[in-house]
Design a protein around this nucleic acid. Structure first.
Lengths: 175, 175
DNA sequence: CGTTTATGTCAGCCATATTGACATATCTGG
DNA sequence: CCAGATATGTCAATATGGCTGACATAAACG
């Protein structure tokens, strides 16, 4: 008998082969530590991850609308409401009426909000930098490619566009 | 005045440099989709991520104690209590008194639990496989190395040991 | 025996999410 | 100009998954 793998087929649509427990667990712990960096800082301010996500996206897309935020975060406006209110009350975010459409509340970070968003991003960047410095110079592009490939193919392009738009200082853009 | 950056010192230890927003956002979306695969299956059963984590670790370390689980998951026994009870009630997990120390409730998956845990792992493995097939054959080891490097250096060894022990069918082991 | 350990449980609290209904202001098209 | 659509906000009720503190039980251990 050839040393072929035993029948490992079609169990509920999950393909054949052995589970990659190593990768599964490594991603679990890596993400936990990655997000933990920011959690610590936020906890001191009485904020949680929800606040972080808002800070992050408003930082990346200054002037975005509430509706844009709901779209990106995929939560309800009721949930966003409380978080946004707290951020505004504490002076991290300001809302301005849209110049063309005054129903819109365009979102911006204050200097204080900008500093916090930046600090959090730098903290997370530091982890990436440390991790990637342990490998060769090609590691960054490899990691980028790997992470992108992990995203659902259907939404991958959308995510790439979102990142590119933010890099150009643009709004999230057409849904 | 030199064009040096404005006071960017020792702000909670976040060093200088530009934030790697691309990596930050890619990891965010990658993890969301990765965990989303399992979330869908679990939701149909009335379970959440907490149940998944328990299933996963009991699957990986059959016969582990409740205390081991608390240690790995870093939650309180009160939180674990509810989740574990539901898994037992629904016939995914069984508890046996320890042979040597009868105070212990050693945890095992039933056949039903084993199937579910395996299905979930294969679903997530499929995503890794797809992602890594888009790169060369060296990609898997590169990804493994990258993810490991993202983990806190202090706990990295511990995580590696945990994975190795599970691969050998052993208990989580010495704390 | 008394103490420690492993586990479970009760009670209450918090954060973050949900759905549904409704309110307000503003824009837009006929 | 008005009717309806749109952008946003808010109230209320509910769910989930965490938390702390206090206490109970059973078994091991010295």
């Amino acid at each position: 008998m050839a040393p072929s793998r035993p029948n490992e087929f079609a169990r509920k649509g999950a393909g054949a082969g052995q589970p990659s427990y190593d990768l599964i667990e490594l991603l679990f712990f890596a993400y936990r530590d990655f997000i933990g960096d920011a959690d610590e800082v936020l906890a001191d301010l009485g904020f949680g991850r929800a606040h972080h996500r808002v800070l992050h996206f408003v930082n990346r897309h200054p002037g975005m609308r509430v509706a844009d935020l709901l779209d990106v975060l995929k939560i309800t406006k009721q949930s966003l409401g409380r978080v946004l209110r707290e951020l505004v009350e504490d002076g991290y975010v300001i809302q301005k009426a849209g110049p063309a459409d005054r129903r819109q509340r365009l979102l911006y970070l204050t200097a204080k909000g900008d500093t916090l968003a930046r600090d959090l991003a730098l903290l997370q960047t530091k982890r990436f930098t440390r991790a990637l410095n342990e490998s060769g110079p090609a590691a960054r592009e490899a990691a980028r490619k790997f992470l992108l490939a992990m995203i659902d193919p259907a939404t991958r392009e959308e995510v790439e566009r979102l990142i590119a738009r933010a890099d150009r200082g643009e709004l999230p853009g057409v849904k």
